[in-house]
Simulated scan of single mutants.
Amino acid sequence: MSAPLYQMKAEFFKTLGHPARIRVLELLSEREHAVAEMLPEVGIEPAHLSQQLAILRRANLVASRKEGPAVYYALTSPQIAELLRVARTILSGVLAGQQELLASLQSGPHPTQPPA
């Protein structure tokens, strides 16, 4: 019997749960990249990047191809880029709400100070 859908979704989001993997997916949302191109953009050691790419490959989120000595990676679906855009929109809304709350707290009277 296969796992329930909610469990599969949780595993999917766990796969996305690392900053380096998110950065790789963001880069690949723009275009195919060689591993050497991603290294300075992701800012981790080559062995660590290789591990992160392997995790994404096992999850079928990226595909690789070899051209000479270079290995190139691409997203397996444009919906991955769409998911990252949706996440950015959600986070922008959350951060905007937090900024509004912070601004209202900073502009109101402080409980330890009497109102002016």
Rank of each mutant, 00 (worst) to 15 (best):
M1R: 14
M1P: 13
A3W: 14
L5W: 07
L5T: 10
Y6M: 11
Y6A: 13
M8W: 12
K9D: 14
A10C: 12
A10L: 14
E11N: 08
F12G: 05
F12V: 08
F12Q: 04
K14P: 07
T15G: 06
T15C: 09
G17E: 10
G17S: 13
G17T: 07
H18I: 04
H18N: 09
P19R: 13
P19K: 10
A20G: 03
R21H: 01
I22P: 03
I22D: 03
R23V: 01
R23Y: 01
V24A: 00
L25E: 01
E26H: 05
L27A: 07
L27C: 06
L28G: 00
S29E: 04
E30Q: 12
R31Q: 04
H33N: 08
H33E: 06
A34T: 08
V35L: 02
V35A: 11
A36K: 04
E37M: 07
M38K: 00
L39I: 08
V42S: 07
G43K: 05
G43E: 04
G43M: 06
I44T: 04
E45C: 01
P46T: 03
P46R: 08
A47C: 06
H48E: 13
L49N: 02
L53Y: 00
A54L: 15
I55E: 09
L56W: 02
L56D: 02
L56A: 06
R57K: 13
R57G: 09
A59K: 01
L61A: 01
V62K: 02
V62T: 10
A63I: 12
S64T: 02
S64H: 01
S64V: 02
S64Q: 04
R65K: 03
R65V: 00
K66R: 12
E67A: 14
E67F: 12
P69Y: 07
A70T: 09
A70D: 11
A70L: 13
Y72I: 01
Y72T: 00
Y72L: 09
T76Q: 07
Q79E: 14
Q79C: 09
A81M: 05
A81S: 10
A81G: 11
A81Q: 08
E82A: 14
L83I: 15
L83Y: 12
L84Y: 06
R85A: 15
V86M: 04
R88C: 03
R88Q: 14
T89I: 15
I90C: 00
L91C: 04
S92T: 11
S92R: 11
G93E: 07
V94D: 00
Q98M: 15
E100L: 15
S104G: 06
L105H: 07
L105C: 08
Q106W: 04
G108Q: 15
G108A: 15
P109I: 08
P109Y: 05
H110E: 06
H110Q: 05
H110P: 07
H110V: 04
H110I: 02
H110M: 03
P111F: 15
T112E: 11
Q113F: 11
Q113N: 10
P114M: 10
P115R: 10
A116T: 14
